[in-house]
Amino acid sequence: MLTAKQHELIQFIQQRLEETGISPSFEEMKEALDLKSKSGVHRLISALEERGFIRRLPNRARALEVIRQPEDAVPASAARPKAANDLVGVRAPAPATRPEPANDVIEIPLHGRIAAGAPIEALEDHQSLPVPAALLGPGDHYALEVSGDSMIEAGIFDGDFALIRRTNTARDGEIVVALVNNEEATLKYLHRDSGNVRLDPANSAYEAQVYAPAQVEVQGKLAGLLRRYH
């Protein structure tokens, strides 16, 4: 089931594919749907991708492919749905038109430096970080500036921007943002060991940290990195 905004967006994308052979840019989609930011477009696209309506072609920007449409799909020039929470059904997949590559950048929230003494929620400072869309998969994302050298052997350095997909679950061996005792946020490898949770650094100079499961809350998984060269 789709919301009215998701329904409106997929029709707009399909219309552009039929007219030009390429999907619209994030800026064009933002304006067409009267949204305030590109991050809203990203959330809609992620939701449509998770529900199997569209897909992003790997290693190609502005590469959206419609693989099925809402049941009552009409030309995008028709009237928009009246309410943002209206739901519509789906029908069998329609033939998709492959778009041509271009470049798109989206903005995600930048919550500040990941450091001891502050939960992720307390780090938010209303900034955003422009990120190439190709670096992000489905889901809701935010960015953190890395502080320290505890993950350098994983290629994560002080001053890097960690791109984090919001989730409260993770598999052993994944790099996560872990909130410890509701007060210290840290970026580490997650492992479950003999009924405990072990947070492993990627630096032989540091030791692993072991906690009871109730002491650790996963707040996201590493999805990518950005690095600035000065």
Score class of each variant (00 low, 15 high):
residue 94 A to Q: 12
residue 139 G to D: 12
residue 204 S to E: 10
residue 172 D to P: 03
residue 114 I to Y: 03
residue 144 L to M: 06
residue 161 F to S: 09
residue 99 P to V: 05
residue 91 R to T: 05
residue 106 I to Y: 01
residue 199 L to N: 05
residue 155 G to T: 00
residue 110 L to A: 04
residue 108 I to F: 00
residue 197 V to Q: 06
residue 154 A to L: 03
residue 175 I to W: 03
residue 90 V to A: 15
residue 172 D to S: 07
residue 89 G to T: 05
residue 106 I to T: 03
residue 90 V to I: 07
residue 181 N to T: 00
residue 108 I to M: 03
residue 83 A to P: 00
residue 147 S to T: 11
residue 117 G to P: 07
residue 170 A to R: 06
residue 93 P to D: 13
residue 78 A to Y: 13
residue 116 A to F: 08
residue 166 R to Y: 12
residue 189 Y to N: 11
residue 137 G to W: 11
residue 184 E to W: 00
residue 154 A to P: 00
residue 151 M to Y: 10
residue 184 E to F: 01
residue 131 V to N: 10
residue 78 A to P: 02
residue 89 G to A: 11
residue 210 V to R: 13
residue 191 H to V: 07
residue 83 A to K: 06
residue 88 V to L: 09
residue 121 E to M: 02
residue 132 P to C: 15
residue 109 P to Y: 07
residue 162 A to E: 03
residue 193 D to C: 14
residue 97 T to W: 06
residue 99 P to C: 09
residue 198 R to N: 09
residue 120 I to A: 07
residue 104 D to H: 10
residue 172 D to C: 06
residue 188 K to S: 09
residue 197 V to D: 04
residue 146 V to H: 01
residue 74 V to T: 04
residue 144 L to V: 03
residue 212 A to G: 05
residue 123 L to R: 13
residue 109 P to G: 10
residue 129 L to S: 02
residue 194 S to Q: 10
residue 158 D to Q: 00
residue 110 L to Y: 11
residue 201 P to R: 13
residue 181 N to Q: 03
residue 90 V to Q: 13
residue 197 V to P: 03
residue 100 E to H: 03
residue 85 N to Y: 04
residue 198 R to H: 07
residue 91 R to Y: 08
residue 188 K to G: 05
residue 157 F to Q: 05
residue 81 P to I: 13
residue 171 R to L: 14
residue 94 A to G: 08
residue 104 D to G: 08
residue 180 V to T: 04
residue 146 V to K: 02
residue 73 A to T: 05
residue 93 P to Y: 15
residue 180 V to K: 04
residue 95 P to I: 14
